[in-house]
């Protein structure tokens, strides 16, 4: 089984997680820029973070034969802090990077005017840099937040098929699918979405234009829930081909719209001139 996790925050995970993910079949992933739990207070904190998403993390992932990509954006939560507004000005540099396959995570947290501004500005950047967009839906007031998200996406002029609206559930999935955008689901141990609920949604809404991710981060989460969901799909009567569609070909099709997805010769043990570099700490 080959798995492409389309949304996971590896910065917050250990190298042991990379090892376990590789053993479970994860061969590629996308790490969206998001907030790190502790609010940042300057643009420089963001650029250092973005640097690690296009520098250190791809290197770390490469040790386990996992191809790492990123999405870059000013996240909705920190868009509310005027000290971080300058992040919008440095985004164009990062959106040109080889490993950056979308603008994201953008969208709403508390649905403020500042969030409106950052969301619209970054959808415009996605159009300008010919990238798809990864849109986060709020945890609070989710149904109305999702409705408003769909409206803003439509107003921006970006093609809906180049947008994934993420963290959906039974209540919000239909509207997103109807809008023409991709439906994203984050499988969490306790909240958001569980493997059994996900399998039910796939039965009801089908396997097309669906991205299933672990969204694993610094919170209570599990990078192997993609594999667990895939196993449950098989146990519930889905075919190997269905699983491959959801966990590989769908993310490849979605992020492939960037023209930058590079999945050639994925093999374990990335090395420099023949020397493995699995040992760290020098």
């Amino acid at each position: 089984m080959r798995i492409f996790d389309p949304h996971i925050h590896m910065t917050s995970r250990t190298t042991d997680d990379y090892e376990r993910m590789a053993a479970a079949g994860v061969r590629a992933l996308v790490e969206p820029a998001f907030w790190l739990g502790q609010p940042r207070t300057s643009v420089a904190s963001f650029t250092d973070y973005f640097d690690s998403l296009v520098g250190w993390e791809p290197f770390r992932a490469g040790q386990f034969g996992i191809r790492h990509h990123a999405t870059i954006a000013l996240n909705p939560k920190e868009a509310n802090d005027p000290r971080c507004a300058g992040v919008l000005d440095v985004l164009p540099r990062y959106l040109e990077k080889d490993g950056v396959v979308a603008v994201g995570e953008i969208g709403y947290d508390s649905m403020t005017a500042e969030e409106d501004h950052a969301f619209a500005a970054q959808l415009a950047l996605a159009i300008e840099h010919e990238l798809p967009a990864l849109v986060h839906t709020p945890h609070r007031d989710k149904a109305r937040g999702t409705e408003r998200t769909i409206k803003v996406v439509a107003e921006s002029g970006i093609e809906p098929g180049r947008v994934v609206v993420d963290h959906l559930n039974e209540v919000t999935v239909a509207a997103v699918k109807d809008s023409g955008s991709w439906a994203g689901f984050s499988i969490y141990p306790d909240t958001k979405m569980s493997p059994p609920r996900m399998v039910e949604i796939l039965k009801q809404f089908g396997t097309e234009r669906v991205l299933v991710n672990s969204a694993a981060d610094w919170g209570k989460s599990d990078p192997l829930l993609t594999r667990e969901t895939a196993d449950l799909m098989l146990a519930s009567g889905f075919s190997d081909d269905d699983v491959d569609l959801v966990f590989w070909r769908n993310p490849v099709a979605f992020y492939g719209q960037s023209g930058k997805l590079d999945l050639d010769d994925i093999a374990p043990g990335a090395s420099f001139e023949g020397n493995s570099i699995l040992r760290g700490g020098s």
Binding site: T47, P58, F59, V90, R93
Partner: peptide, 8 residues
Amino acid sequence: RYGDASEK
């Protein structure tokens, strides 16, 4: 400063 690892 703004390079990814390959650019650096």
